[in-house]
Every structure is written in C-alpha cells, then in structure tokens.
C-alpha cells in the first residue's frame, strides 16, 4: 500500500449568499489521495468540484472537516515556516489560461515568482536559468521568456501556468479543469505533458474536470460528485466498466463517442430534468429529482458512501 499524501475528512464548504440562503458547495466529502497517483474528480458545473479543489489547497477555509497534507492541517493554525512549506509543496494549475497569468508581467517574471518567494536561486543568473529550464520542460524556449501572456495561444499559456506551478518543485498539484478551455488537439498535448511531468518529477495530482474521457485517461482513481456530495469512487477502469450509481451510469452514457458505428447502435440513458439549484438543499439524495430508478426512501434520507467491493464506494440507497 502506497503512502497517503492527502486526507480529506468530512470536508464541507458553504457560502452564505444572504440571510437564510446557504449554498452548500461541498458537503461532507471524504477521501484520500495516495502518493504518486492521479485522483480524478468529475461532475457537472455547480457540483462543487472546483470549490473542493480550492479548499484543499487552502484558498478557502473549510466550513467543517479537515484537509491534512502529509501530517499538516491545511486550514489549521500554522507557523510561518509551515505556511511556506505548504505553499512550496502544494500547487495549483488553473482553468482559464486567459485570467491565470498577470497580463502586465513577462513570462520570465511570472514563472520566477515562486522561485523568488522561496529564495530558491542564489543569483539572478541562476534564477533565469531555472526559468529557462522550466520553459524547456513544458516545451517552450528562450524566445518566449520575454513576451507578455497576451501574445501566446491558449495552450501555450496553460503550459506557462504549469511551469509556474512546477517552479517550486511541489509534491502535489491540484489541476482545476486545466484542459476545458483548450482545443481538442491542445488538450491531448497538455494531458500528455502532465503525465510525463508526473513520471519525471514524482508528482501527485488531483485532476478536476468535466470531460470524462480525459479524466479516465489520466487518472488512477476517480470520484464522481453531484451537488456537493461524492456519489461514487472507484479505480478508473472499474468505474467505467461497472458504474453503480445511476448518475454515473447516465453520465457515462451521455458522452458522445467519436466513433460513428458505436454511436449508431447506442442506446442512451437521457436524464429528464435539470440539476437542482444548490441553494438550501433538502436532506435527501440530491439526485432523486432526475433519477430513473428513484424510490420512496431516496426523497427522505441521505444515502451514505459505502464500500461495495474493495476500493469501490457508492452512495445510493438502491445498492446494498
């Protein structure tokens, strides 16, 4: 058994919108991430996956529960040294390549920010050399160092964002929808780059996305979220071969495959209705309004996440 790098324990993050209106973005989610693995987190917009990612790295304080990274409580009180250690070891890659780079800074300075903050380079020339090495490792070169972000294409910007995250030699990276704003051919580039970097630098990823096929390709294990809850968790092969939660099945069935012959003979589970508003949710299975297999109990009780076979967890009343 590999070492557990990150523990998420009963994590909740609520936002109070106005009096009496509470948005339960993340509600009681628990899972572990092992050293060296990629944990994929999927779900539709508004399911709380990005909030979870930001809470994990400490950008939002949790409302309830804990995030423990290698023995350190991310949200707890820490000494300055611990804070700096966390900021060196945990990094994030962002979704929007257009707003994730400061438009007034040159790429060189964007990437060097972490190196400067952590005093990782002894001299100016060492610092610049480190930036160039980072640029090379994401497939860019000197030519790009003195340019401003707006001169780059979306895929190139995303790679600058990756180089920035790598600059402090982190152990763990949260990738918050890093490919959803990119073109198809560029998505594969970025995902392959991330895979390659994981092997060469021994990284652990929390990979958040809504594109299931890419998540399956990069992840070892996958968690599926629906309206703030984790509804299913399994190894990626298991999840795709044997989805248990009705939502997971519908999600998988909804992906259009780039294969006309398969598409012609496919019968789809098309879900009725829409996702509920995440404000003031009732205490029941949040999927019950759209579930094709709904029963009376689903409207009354919150299903718990249970392990149904080794490593395969699901939160559904129908599965015992």
């Amino acid at each position: 058994m590999t070492k557990t790098l990150l523990e998420i324990k009963d994590l909740s993050r609520f936002f109070t919108l106005s009096k009496g209106q509470v948005l339960e973005a993340v509600n009681g989610v628990s899972f572990d991430i092992h050293q060296g693995e990629t944990f994929g987190l999927v779900g539709e917009s508004g399911c709380g996956k990005s909030t979870l990612g930001r809470t994990v790295v400490g950008l939002y304080p949790p409302t309830k529960g804990k995030v423990i990274f290698d023995g350190i409580d991310v949200a707890g009180s820490k000494s300055q040294t611990q804070k700096m250690e966390l900021s060196r070891r945990m990094q994030m890659i962002f979704q929007d390549p257009y707003t994730s780079l400061n438009p007034r800074m040159k790429v060189m300075d964007i990437i060097a920010e972490g190196i400067d903050n952590h005093h990782m380079a002894a001299s100016r020339s060492e610092r610049n050399q480190m930036v160039l090495d980072l640029l090379h490792s994401v497939g860019l070169d000197e030519e790009h160092a003195n340019r401003y972000p707006h001169e780059f294409s979306g895929g190139q910007r995303q790679r600058v964002g990756i180089a920035r995250a790598l600059s402090v030699n982190p152990d763990f990276i949260v990738a918050d929808e890093p490919i959803s704003a990119l073109d198809v051919s560029i998505q594969a580039q970025v995902v392959n780059l991330m895979k390659h970097l994981q092997e060469t630098r021994n990284l652990t990823y929390l990979f958040i996305a809504h594109d299931l096929s890419m998540v399956k390709y990069i992840s070892n294990r996958i968690g599926v979220m629906y309206l703030g809850n984790l509804v299913e968790l399994a190894s990626s092969d298991e999840l795709f071969k044997n989805p248990l939660h009705p939502y997971t099945s519908a999600l998988l069935s909804a992906i259009p495959l780039p294969d006309p012959k398969v598409e012609r003979n496919r019968s789809r589970i098309v879900l009725e209705g829409n996702v509920k508003s995440p404000i003031n949710l009732p205490k029941n299975c949040h999927f019950c309004t759209r579930c094709p297999k709904k029963q009376a109990i689903c409207e009354r009780e919150v299903p718990e996440l249970k392990e149904v076979s080794p490593g395969h967890f699901v939160a559904c009343h129908l599965i015992r």
Partner: peptide, 26 residues
Amino acid sequence: SQEFVLAAQLLGTSTWKIILRHLIPN
C-alpha cells in the same frame, strides 16, 4: 478573484507584493 492572484497567493507571495505587483499595475 482572478486566477493569477490566487496563483500568487499559493506561491507564497506576501500581501504587499500582491498589491504592488499584481493589483496596482492592472
């Protein structure tokens, strides 16, 4: 709330530096 400011926070940039390098120039 833009992602480049969040990124700076995560990289351990101090609040003053964030104001001077990221907020004011923009």
